[in-house]
Design a protein around this nucleic acid. Structure first.
Lengths: 242, 242
DNA sequence: CCACCGTAAATTGTATACAATCTACATTTT
DNA sequence: AAAATGTAGATTGTATACAATTTACGGTGG
């Protein structure tokens, strides 16, 4: 995100990643190196490098000698991501609650205010930013900013489902209310309420999965049992290596 | 690990990864593409691809236009990894405890027996395998096998510290005892004991960090505040892209 | 003596060329 | 007709060549 020094590869990376996340490129879509190279006006070399990066993030799937595709949505992978995110966010919030002080309180209420502004303006992009900022802020209060990287890794698996779901239409008002409850619970250092409020917030994706699989089965991939559990990447086939 | 079809890149990947993990290549060691290519008798292309993979695992750090190095150990990154692993393993174990049945009990006791065999034979490699297999088995009992991928990602950050630490010398007997305690707690579905036993098992790395930083400061890198929190990789500089 | 260029070597970033592999389809065989 | 096989095209995997950037070092001027 930082360091816009703009290597050729970084342009391709940002462009492709955006298109995958905002679903311009649908799950399962084939990614032919030559075509991408031509599209971005570069050679295949940086394109390949980018595909490897995206594969390590779980956004692309590479099949050895057979090409790359936008990662299909896997029910197992999304459920796992939900579990991971919930576990980590609850742990982080419980830790943050022990570290609360006046400044932390202020920062969290500011984050909420920014969400309300974005909502009032109808600026979705700004809202998502403020949303992420709040979750990151909680991690920072907990003294564990680097945990956010792990959480984001799980989050991407859920984001496409959320964006595809109709329930996405549920207005930001509801989300802000949930955020308020979370922040209050942290400020009050109430472990049970912290856990409950975060669970309520993060588990919305679960019913969405089933609804989506019914409406758009073509975006899904039946979770194959024969898929090897890779040593370091989750839910991904690592046929490209290993 | 599977799919030994052996592309050129996979050979380099397995070789390099092993050398980094077993510390043949020390943290901070420079990785010059040309030298690696010559060493493995291949061209720079697959070497670069491998470096990107390893960077996404957190084992290599790539500095844009300045080359790659074996990732230095970062105190923050190791502490974070410990937090993440603990959080996930406890959550998984609590879930597994609810799913216990005769078969699951059997599999866990088998895993312990294999560890005892490895210990009796003095076969460290086998022990580590059995150790991992047990943790993975717990995830499978919980119905969440894919969580293991996330855990492993954190685990690598801790493994080099453990291997460098003198406390590593603590015989396997102690580890097996800890494993027994964990398995008993899961079998008894005793949430508090599950949490305590796992914490005791996983927190050993924390005192090791300080001792190691005193003995081998050259392997460490002061945790830079100016390092951007990347969107998807944790504790890593992503200067190579973004 | 120190700071400030400026150039050369080393190294990475990208492009292109070639080899290996896979897919699809036509042909042959049973 | 169905199955097997062979071949052409497309696509990926790897090697090599070239461009861009960084680093080190020596000269120059202050």
């Amino acid at each position: 995100m930082r360091q816009l020094s703009q290597s050729t590869a970084s342009i391709v990376y940002n462009g492709l990643r955006q298109k995958i996340i905002d679903l311009t490129l649908k799950p399962g879509a084939l990614l032919v190196e030559q075509k991408l190279a031509h599209e971005y006006g570069v050679s295949r070399t940086p394109v390949r490098e980018v595909l490897v990066w995206l594969a390590s993030e779980g956004l692309v799937e590479i099949l050895r000698n057979r090409g790359a595709m936008v990662a299909p949505i896997r029910v197992d992978a999304v459920r796992t991501a939900q579990f991971v995110r919930e576990s980590l966010e609850v742990s982080v919030a419980l830790t943050a609650a022990k570290n609360m002080n006046a400044l932390a309180r202020l920062k969290l209420s500011h984050a909420i205010e920014e969400q309300e502004l974005a909502n009032a303006e109808g600026n979705a992009e700004l809202f998502y930013q403020a949303d992420e900022a709040m979750h990151l802020e909680i991690a920072q209060i907990a003294g564990l900013p680097l945990v956010w990287g792990y959480i984001e890794e799980a989050k991407v698996q859920m984001d496409r489902v959320r964006r595809l779901s109709l329930s996405q239409a549920q207005s930001f008002d509801k989300l802000i209310a949930q955020h308020r409850r979370i922040v209050s619970a942290i400020a009050a250092n109430d472990p049970v309420e912290i856990t409950d409020s975060l669970n309520a917030h993060l588990r919305q994706v679960l019913p969405d999965i089933d609804a989506l699989r019914r409406n758009r089965p073509e975006y899904f991939d039946e979770d194959a049992q024969d898929r090897p559990v890779s040593s370091t990447l989750h839910g991904q086939t690592v046929a490209g290596l290993a």
